Simulated assay, not measured.
Amino acid sequence: MKGRAVPVQEVVFGFGAHSGIGEAPELLRMAQQADRDGLDHFSLSDHPYLGERLDAYAALGFVLGRTQRISGLANVTNLPTRPAPMLARTVTSLSALSGGRVVLGMGAGGLWDRISDMGVPRLSPGDAVDAFEEAIVLVKSLSGGGPPVTYRGRFYQVDQIEPAPVPTPPVWTGSVGRKSLAATGRVADGWIPGHAADWLSERYRTSRPIIDEAAAAVGRDPREIRTVFNFPGRVTDRPLAATRDRDGRWIGGSVGQWVEELTGAVLEHGASGFTLFSYGHGAPDPALLGRWANEIAPAVRDAIAKEDG
């Protein structure tokens, strides 16, 4: 898996944000802090069947309207509850309003018992992935301008719909299974490995080649499909004796240990982005977010630039 490093300007750093209704003020404060500190993106979960959660796309629009540079994404969009033609209108509108600061995170749908509670017809796993791939194709067709679109798929059909005259947002998926990973290789722009799997995990080692092979099979350069890791951990004042637990999962460590680990992830394993969560997989606190933005991310960028130079 070595040799897939990307230019330093393409390596992105973000954080997973609060999504509870009662946490809305904290969400805005942290997004504005990250915006000032130069982070690239924030992400929100999308679970519309949970009444205590903010609607992901309403929250994205609100935060993007109160920030200047940072991009936002749903990590990942609950596609079965958001039909692709309307999702296309949502993300292109947010892109137009924010100056292009939107990434479309896409998933096929995982918690089908809860999804079907919303009145959405249940799909088999295979059909859900087919609908997911159709949706990505259709969203891309309905952006970027051009002539009216007519699309005839198994799950989506549109007739003479005008695309939005804004660039197509990048699409990052949360694919897990082989069929979904192959769809990512064919039609997506990025991949967020599931279950917080990192570049040393068996999940990554066995999954990323499926994406690459599917991309190459349709004439795409696999290196154009970035891997953005959801990455939990804590920052300590002193180096830790071990930065990974017995199962090989990253725990955290000092700033120097983080910088060494992430620089190696980029240069040796082709990582092109990191979304920080706390060690307990929740949103980071302001202190952790500040160290991530002001100490770790700049040092990783500098280390990569030195290697590239």
Rank of each mutant, 00 (worst) to 15 (best):
E202Y: 05
R203V: 10
R205I: 01
R205V: 08
T206W: 06
T206Y: 06
T206V: 12
T206F: 04
S207H: 06
R208H: 14
P209F: 01
I210A: 06
I210R: 13
I210W: 07
I211F: 12
I211N: 05
I211E: 11
D212Q: 14
D212F: 08
D212Y: 12
E213P: 13
A214P: 13
A215P: 14
A216Y: 06
A216P: 14
A217R: 13
V218S: 08
V218M: 15
V218N: 13
D221V: 02
P222M: 08
E224T: 15
I225Q: 08
R226G: 12
R226A: 15
T227L: 04
T227N: 10
V228Q: 10
V228G: 05
F229N: 11
N230I: 06
F231H: 15
F231N: 10
P232R: 03
P232C: 06
R234S: 13
R234L: 07
V235R: 01
V235E: 04
V235M: 04
T236L: 00
R238W: 09
R238V: 15
L240D: 11
A241F: 01
A242N: 06
A242Q: 08
T243W: 04
T243R: 06
R244I: 06
D245A: 00
R246V: 05
R246I: 02
D247L: 13
D247P: 00
G248A: 00
G248M: 00
G248R: 01
R249E: 07
R249N: 14
I251R: 10
I251G: 01
G252Y: 02
